[in-house]
Design a protein around this nucleic acid. Structure first.
Length: 824
RNA sequence: GCCCGGGUGGCGGAAUUGGUAGACGCAAGGGACUUAAAAUCCCUCGCCGGCAACGGUGUACCGGUUCGAGUCCGGUCCCGGGCACCA
C-alpha cells in the first residue's frame, strides 16, 4: 500500500466508485427494516456553508451507521428553491430567478458530492420545479374546498415607497430597512391556512413525540398557547349588539370596571362618539405604526383613548367606559379585554393613568386590599368579595362556579383560546408557487379547475425591484377567462409562503417521480414517518409546526395514514467562529471548498463532528482542523506500519494470548461498546471519536508485537477501528479496508460487536474518600465483597493519617466504585 | 418584553443514573530523531504553596439539600436561539 495519505486521491477514487455504482440508491424492500433519515434541505443560496457541512456530516454518520446495522436506509437530498434572495439577485444582475437558482443548485450539488455524503441522488427534488409545485397547487385547492384555505383581511407592515410588504425584522424603528420611509400598517386581503383547526391535535401530539427534544416540544406548546376560560358578552349601551371578550379570569368578572379594545377592533371606529372621533382616529394611526414586539413588552408605556361609548358588566350592571388600548392585540382572543385593574397589572397601570374606577373582588388572607392604597394589581388566589353570591369562596373555586353560572344564564360560555394564529401564506412575490385562484367580476372567487393545473410561473417577467409584485404586472399572466362563465377575469398574483414547500418535501422524496399525485401512497406508507430528522434549532417552532400541520391535513384529505412526519428529532447547534455566527459581514466565514482542497472531506467531516456534540454550538478552530488531519495520518500510518505483521492473521484465540494481547483486546472491545452506545443512543460523535483516538494511542504503545500469536489481536483492533470510523470518515477507511485485504465493503461486513467476555475486568480501582474528599485509590479483585473493600480502604496507608484520632461514624460503599469514610 | 436553551483549564470539549472534575483534541513547554529544519515519536501541563511526598483550592455568582453536588432545589448575573413575510 501507499505509504503517504493523500486525501484527494483517495476521495476521488471512492466518490467515483459510489457514484458509478449507485451505492446509495434504495428501493422499498419489505425483507429489511426501513430507516428514513432526513436532514433539512438547504436553500440554494450559492455555496454551502459550515452549518451545512455540520448538518450533513451528522446525518451521514447516522445513514452509514444504520446501513452497517442492516437497515434499508432512505437518505435523500433536495433544494428549498423558492424564496426572496433569488428575486433580489435577479433584480441586481438583471437576470432571472430560475437561472440564478439552478446555477446555485448545480454548484452546491457538486460541493455536497465532494463531501462524500451518501445520498440517493436519484431522488433529488427542487421545489421550484413545476413537477413539485403543481402538486402543492392541487393540495391548496382541496384545502380551499374543505375551508382549510381561506381569505381574510389582515394587517401587514407596508412600505409605501417600495410598494411592498415588510417582515417585522425589515422594520427598523418604524421605518423601512431599505429606503427608510415610514412603514404603515396596511389592510390586505390575504390567503390563510386554518392551522388553528388543528391546534388541539398539534398540542395533544406533543405528548406523543418522545423522540423529540423536550425543549422543542415546550416551545411548540407555548407557541400554540392553549388557555381555558370563558367568552363573555358585554351588552353595548344604546346598541342591540354586545362586545365579546375572552378571559381566563372569569373569577374577577365582578371587578371589571371598564373595557379595553384593540385599536384594530372592527367596532373601534364605530364606537367613537362624534366629539371623540378625531382623537380616536389619531390614536389608531399611532398604534398602527408601533411594532408588535414592542407593543406587548411589559415595560411598554400603556396608552389608550376613550371612545365615548359604554357597555354594561352583565353581572354587576356597572356602566363600563370603552377604551382603545395599545396593549390589546387584535388577533388574540376576541381583540377585547374586560379590564379588572385590581387583579391585572396592565389594567392597573392603565386605570391609574386614566383615573378609572377600581373594585377589589379577591382578598388575600391576612391583608386588606383597598383600591386607594394598592400599588400593584393582586394577581394571586384569595377569597371572593364584592361578588354577589360568590362571596366567601376561594377564587380558584369561583373560576369554575362563575363559568357554570355564565353558561346557565346565557351570558357566556366556557371555551379554550389559542395563542396560535392561522398561517398567512400570501406573498406578493414572484419566485414562489402561484396560488391557483381566479377572480371573476360575475362569479367571484373561482378555483382553477384541476385540469388547468399547473398554474405556471411565467418566464417573461421583468424584475425592476419597484412597484410591487412582478406577477401583478405581468399582463399575460394576470388576464384570464373565467373557467365558469368565460368572461374576462384576473388571476391571483400572490404566491405561497416557501414554508409550504418545506412542509411536505419529505413525502415527495418517497416517490420523487410520481406523476399521478404529490406522492405514491404505498411508497409513502413504506418509508414514512421520517425516523430521524436533523436540522437547526432555529426551526424549532415554525417549520416543524407547519410540517406537522400539513402532514395531518394530507392525512385528512385521504392521501395517507400518517399522523406525524418526524418520529425523532435532532436539533443541531450553530457553527460559531470568534464568538459569533459565521457571516460575510463579520468576515469570519470558513469556506468548505478551501477546507476540502487543503485537508480533504474526511478531515472536514471529522472536525465538525469531533469539536462538539451535535446539539451544542460548534466553535470553529483552524488549529483544531490540523489535529483531525493529524489523527487520520496516524490511522493511515498505523495500518501501513503493521500491514505485514498482521498479514493474513485469522480469528483471535482468546486463550492463546500474552498479557499484553489480552489487555489490548479488552481495550478494543470496551471501545466497541462505548462507540456503539455513543453513536446509537446519544449521537455523541465527539466522544465516540475520542474513544477511537484513545484506541489508536493504545495501539501506538502496544508492546506485544514480538509474539506472533498477537497478530490476530492487532488485526482485530485495526479492523475494528476502520469499521468504527467508517461512518465518520468513509473515504480513508474504505481505502484502508481494501488495503488490509478485504474485497467487500465495510457496509457489507457490518458494524462490529463486542465480546462480553473480553470486556470483563480482573481488578477494579476503588476511590477512597474521607468525609467526601478524595484521599486514595485502591485496587481490589473484581469479585471482592463489600467488607473486603471497606477493610482495604481503611487499611490504606494514605487513608490512615486522615482517620487518626477520629471516630468513624459511617462507611459508605458504592459497589465497584467508591468508599467514603465519614469521621467526626 | 415574552418563550426556550447555555455558562467547566490558555482554547474546543469530557464526566451517560448524585460518586476520581478536566477524557480526547488544540495551544504551550521539554526531550528523541536530524548537519539543520519540517514532519514524526515520547513526556509535562487547572490555580496557589512546596525540592518533593503532599496540602489547599476550583465547574459564572450567592445560598440550600446530601456522607458526597459540574450534576438536584431557590435566587442573581451574563451569553445565545425563536417571536408568525429571512429560510
Amino acid at each position: 500500500m501507499q505509504e503517504k495519505y493523500i486525501p484527494a486521491q483517495v476521495e476521488e477514487k471512492w466518490q467515483h466508485q459510489w457514484e458509478s455504482g449507485k451505492a446509495f440508491k434504495v428501493a422499498e424492500d419489505r425483507s429489511k427494516q426501513k430507516y428514513y433519515l432526513l436532514e433539512m434541505f438547504p436553500y440554494p443560496s450559492g455555496r454551502i456553508h459550515m452549518g451545512h457541512v455540520r448538518n450533513y456530516s451528522i446525518g451521514d454518520v447516522l445513514a452509514r451507521f444504520k446501513r452497517m446495522r442492516g437497515f434499508n436506509v432512505l437518505h435523500p437530498m433536495g433544494w428549498d428553491a423558492f424564496g426572496m434572495p433569488a428575486e433580489n439577485a435577479a433584480i441586481q444582475n438583471k437576470s432571472h430567478p430560475a437561472k440564478w437558482t439552478y446555477e446555485n443548485i448545480d454548484y452546491m450539488r457538486g460541493q455536497l458530492k465532494k463531501l462524500g455524503l451518501s445520498y440517493d441522488w436519484d431522488r433529488e427534488v427542487a421545489t421550484c420545479n413545476v413537477d413539485y409545485y403543481k402538486w402543492e397547487q392541487r393540495v391548496f385547492l382541496e384545502m380551499y374546498r374543505k375551508g382549510l384555505a381561506y381569505k381574510k383581511t389582515s394587517f401587514v407592515n407596508w412600505c409605501p415607497k417600495c410598494d411592498t410588504v415588510l417582515a417585522n425584522e425589515q422594520v427598523e424603528d418604524g421605518c423601512c430597512w431599505r429606503c427608510d420611509s415610514e412603514v404603515v400598517q396596511k389592510e390586505l386581503e390575504q390567503w390563510f391556512f386554518r392551522i388553528t383547526a388543528y391546534a388541539d391535535e398539534l398540542l395533544e401530539y406533543t405528548d406523543k413525540l418522545p423522540g423529540w427534544p423536550e425543549r422543542v416540544l415546550t416551545m411548540q406548546r407555548n407557541w400554540i398557547g392553549r388557555s381555558t376560560g370563558c367568552e363573555i358578552d358585554f351588552p353595548l349601551e344604546g346598541h342591540l349588539s354586545s362586545i365579546k371578550v375572552f378571559t381566563t379570569r372569569q373569577d374577577t368578572l365582578y371587578g371589571a370596571t371598564f373595557m379595553s379594545l384593540a385599536p384594530e377592533h372592527p367596532l373601534a371606529l364605530e364606537l367613537a362618539t362624534p366629539e371623540r372621533r378625531a382623537e380616536v382616529e389619531e390614536f389608531i394611526e399611532k398604534v398602527r405604526k408601533t411594532d408588535r414586539i414592542k407593543r406587548t413588552a411589559e415595560d411598554f408605556e400603556k396608552e389608550g383613548v376613550f371612545t365615548g361609548s359604554y357597555c354594561t358588566n352583565p353581572v354587576t350592571n356597572r356602566r363600563m367606559p370603552i377604551y382603545l388600548a395599545n396593549f390589546v392585540l387584535p388577533d388574540y382572543g376576541t381583540g377585547a379585554v374586560m379590564a379588572v385593574p385590581t387583579h391585572d397589572q396592565r389594567d392597573f397601570e392603565f386605570a391609574r393613568k386614566y383615573d378609572l374606577p377600581m373594585q377589589v373582588v379577591i382578598q388575600p388572607e391576612g391583608v386588606e386590599l383597598t383600591p386607594a392604597t394598592m400599588t400593584a394589581a393582586y394577581t394571586e388566589e384569595g377569597i371572593m368579595v364584592n361578588s354577589g353570591q360568590f362571596d366567601g369562596i376561594r377564587s380558584s373555586e369561583a373560576k369554575e362556579r362563575i363559568a357554570d353560572y355564565l353558561e346557565k344564564e346565557g351570558i357566556g360560555k366556557k371555551t379554550a383560546n389559542f395563542r396560535l394564529r392561522d398561517w398567512g401564506i400570501s406573498r406578493q412575490r414572484y419566485w414562489g408557487s402561484p396560488i391557483p385562484i381566479i377572480y371573476c367580476d360575475l362569479c367571484g372567487v373561482v378555483p382553477v379547475p384541476e385540469k388547468d393545473l399547473p398554474v405556471l410561473l411565467p418566464m417573461d417577467v421583468e424584475f425592476s425591484g419597484e412597484g410591487g409584485s412582478p406577477l401583478a404586472k405581468a399582463e399575460s399572466f394576470r388576464n384570464v377567462t373565467c373557467p365558469q362563465c368565460g368572461e374576462i377575469a384576473r388571476r391571483e398574483t400572490d404566491t405561497m409562503d416557501t414554508f409550504v414547500e418545506s412542509s411536505w418535501y419529505f413525502l415527495r422524496y418517497c416517490s420523487p417521480d410520481c406523476n399521478t399525485g404529490p406522492f405514491d401512497r404505498e411508497k409513502a406508507e413504506y418509508w414514512m414517518s421520517v425516523d430521524q430528522y436533523i436540522g437547526g434549532i432555529e426551526h424549532a417552532v415554525m417549520h416543524l409546526l407547519y410540517a406537522r400541520f400539513f402532514t395531518k391535513v394530507l392525512r385528512d384529505l385521504g392521501y395517507m395514514a400518517v399522523d406525524e412526519p418526524f418520529v425523532n428529532l435532532l436539533t443541531q447547534g450553530m457553527v460559531i467562529k470568534d464568538g459569533s455566527k459565521m457571516s460575510k459581514s463579520k468576515g469570519n466565514v470558513v469556506d468548505p471548498d478551501a477546507l476540502i482542497r487543503k485537508y480533504g472531506a474526511d478531515t472536514a467531516r471529522l472536525f465538525s463532528l469531533f469539536a462538539a456534540p451535535p446539539e451544542k454550538d460548534l466553535d470553529w478552530s483552524d488549529q483544531g482542523v490540523d489535529g483531525s488531519y493529524r489523527f487520520l495520518n496516524r490511522v493511515w500510518k498505523l495500518v501501513s506500519d503493521n500491514i505485514s505483521f498482521i498479514g493474513n492473521a485469522g480469528p483471535v484465540n482468546p486463550s492463546g494470548l500474552t498479557e499484553e494481547g489480552k489487555a489490548l483486546r479488552r481495550i478494543v472491545h470496551k471501545t466497541i461498546r462505548k462507540v456503539t452506545e455513543d453513536v446509537e443512543d446519544r449521537f455523541h460523535f465527539n466522544t465516540a471519536i475520542a474513544a477511537c483516538m484513545e484506541l489508536v494511542n493504545a495501539l501506538y504503545g502496544f508492546e506485544g508485537k514480538n509474539a506472533p500469536q498477537n497478530a490476530a489481536v492487532l488485526r482485530e483492533a485495526i479492523e475494528s477501528i476502520l469499521l468504527m470510523l467508517a461512518p465518520f470518515v468513509p473515504h480513508v477507511t474504505a481505502e484502508l479496508w481494501q488495503a488490509t485485504g478485504h474485497p467487500g465493503t465495510m457496509e457489507e461486513h457490518g458494524w462490529p460487536s463486542y465480546d462480553p467476555e473480553a470486556v470483563v475486568d480482573e481488578e477494579l480501582l476503588i476511590i477512597v474518600q474521607v468525609n467526601g474528599k478524595l484521599r486514595s485509590k485502591v485496587t481490589v479483585a473484581a469479585d471482592a465483597g463489600e467488607d473486603e473493600v471497606k477493610a482495604a480502604a481503611q487499611a490504606d496507608e494514605k487513608v490512615i493519617p486522615h482517620l487518626e484520632g477520629k471516630i468513624i461514624r459511617k462507611v459508605i460503599y458504592v459497589p465497584g466504585k467508591l468508599v467514603n469514610i465519614v469521621v467526626g
